[in-house]
Simulated scan of single mutants.
Amino acid sequence: MKRPFHKGWNVIRRITGMVMCLLCVITLLPLLQAEGAGIQNASRSMQPSTFAKSTAELHSDTLAPDAVQQFAREQAIILGTEHEGNHWDHAQLDFYPLGPGTRSWLVYANVVGSPVGYMIISANDQGQFQLSEYGQGEQRPYNISLLNQALDRQQLDLKKMINDGGGLQLRYAPPLLAYWKVERPNDDAIYIDATNGDTLPTSVLNALDRDSQQDTKRMKSIRSISVQAVVKTPDVSPKVPMLSVDSMDLQPLFDPADNLLWITSKALSISGVKTLNQQWKEHKKIVFSADQQNVMYGGPLPVSGYQIWRDDRGTVQNQYIAIGGNTSVRRFVPLQTLLRDGNFYAVKP
């Protein structure tokens, strides 16, 4: 099967780089102030909802309904089982909604101001939540420095742009496209990948915008999702599933563009972590590519590790595969998501 490799797209993704900003005027004004943007009187009412393990009550906030907070806290406690001292279970969680129609929330985890990791939580029409992706340590999407560099490369002054009627929004398009929408007054919006700072094709993102607006009209409200989920788990204190995570298995990072011979190889037969490990022993380096959907992944990307989630009997319940980490954020995503949308390829020496 022919798999087109868009060399021109990769060049664009590399050249556009990273640049100056502040996050969404509505959701990230405290960060804007920290960067010296000089916007006043907004942080009092725009602070994100937060809690830690010792918090007895989950506080509702327009940035994240109670059910989202509860689900996020459960996932954080599970991630905290990896090893003693990884601090997920004691982290403060900060919530940011990711655009209209997506029903997704970005969650930053910090301990005493130091990053522990991040999560992106998504909800379906039935109010069921999924951990769409997560990351460990300092690497996280929607990084302020990344955006600062990207906007600077575009020669944009965010404060002036906002004063003139423009704006900035955090967006997320399933399965894995994290991006900023930069609205310019009297000009077309531009879109920036929030995992690597690359500029995204406006035609594709404009279509996604139209779809998300239609989804928003069909939704009754985000809060209705919260009510559905709370009915299923009515306890105020988190009811944590008996799950735990193995230690992360990480692989050396590399750039798939350094050796393009993987394009000519056949897709590997991957059904789980076991077969993935077998391929690593034989080929050393593996690339994930969603082919013509790579714009939705920021790919092609190196496969850089995995983490297994188990129940209290030790049975494997979830397999999260790490993609990226070299020129983009390392993201742990469900193996089923990758198998549905793309293939794995061996990098030939």
Rank of each mutant, 00 (worst) to 15 (best):
K266D: 12
H83M: 10
S60N: 15
T216D: 07
F5Y: 12
P238T: 02
Y306T: 00
D157F: 05
K7H: 14
G135V: 09
P4N: 08
S221F: 14
M119S: 02
A52G: 13
K159S: 04
W105L: 03
D94A: 12
C21L: 15
P100L: 08
P48S: 05
V227D: 06
G17S: 09
M18A: 13
T337A: 11
P349D: 11
N196L: 02
M219Y: 13
D209F: 07
I78F: 05
V295I: 11
L28V: 10
Q47L: 15
I225D: 07
V273F: 02
R73F: 13
T337Q: 13
N343R: 11
A76F: 04
H59R: 15
D211H: 14
T81M: 06
A189T: 04
L261F: 09
G298C: 00
M219A: 14
K220R: 14
H6S: 12
Q139P: 01
G197L: 11
G85E: 06
W9P: 01
D66F: 06
G135D: 06
Q126V: 07
L23F: 14
D246H: 13
D198V: 08
I286P: 00
N186D: 08
L168C: 14
A322I: 07
Q293K: 10
T195W: 00
H90C: 06
E138L: 15
Y108G: 07
L158F: 08
Q251K: 13
D246I: 04
P174I: 11
L260P: 01
S304W: 03
N186F: 09
N294W: 00
H87I: 06
G127Q: 05
T202D: 10
D258L: 05
Q317G: 01
I15R: 14
G272I: 02
I286C: 00
S203Y: 06
R218N: 07
K160P: 01
L156K: 03
F129R: 07
A64E: 01
A257T: 09
G36A: 09
A229G: 01
L243A: 02
Y134A: 06
A67N: 05
L63I: 14
M1F: 12
I121Q: 01
V116E: 02
N10D: 05
G342L: 02
V329H: 07
G272L: 00
K159D: 04
W309P: 01
N277G: 03
M296I: 03
Q69R: 15
A178W: 06
K220W: 11
T233D: 10
N206A: 15
D152N: 13
V329R: 06
V112H: 13
R310T: 02
V303H: 08
K281P: 02
G117V: 05
H87K: 12
L151M: 08
K239T: 14
D209I: 01
K160S: 13
V107Q: 06
T62C: 12
M242S: 14
K159H: 05
K53I: 07
L93D: 03
D291F: 10
G113F: 09
Q213I: 09
P48R: 05
T202Q: 10
G324H: 12
S269V: 12
G167Q: 09
H83L: 10
R331E: 07
M248N: 02
L147P: 00
P141G: 02
M20V: 10
V204L: 13
L250Q: 07
M46A: 12
V273S: 00
I120R: 03
T62I: 15
Q128Y: 15
L147I: 06
P349E: 13
L28Q: 15
I78R: 02
R310Q: 06
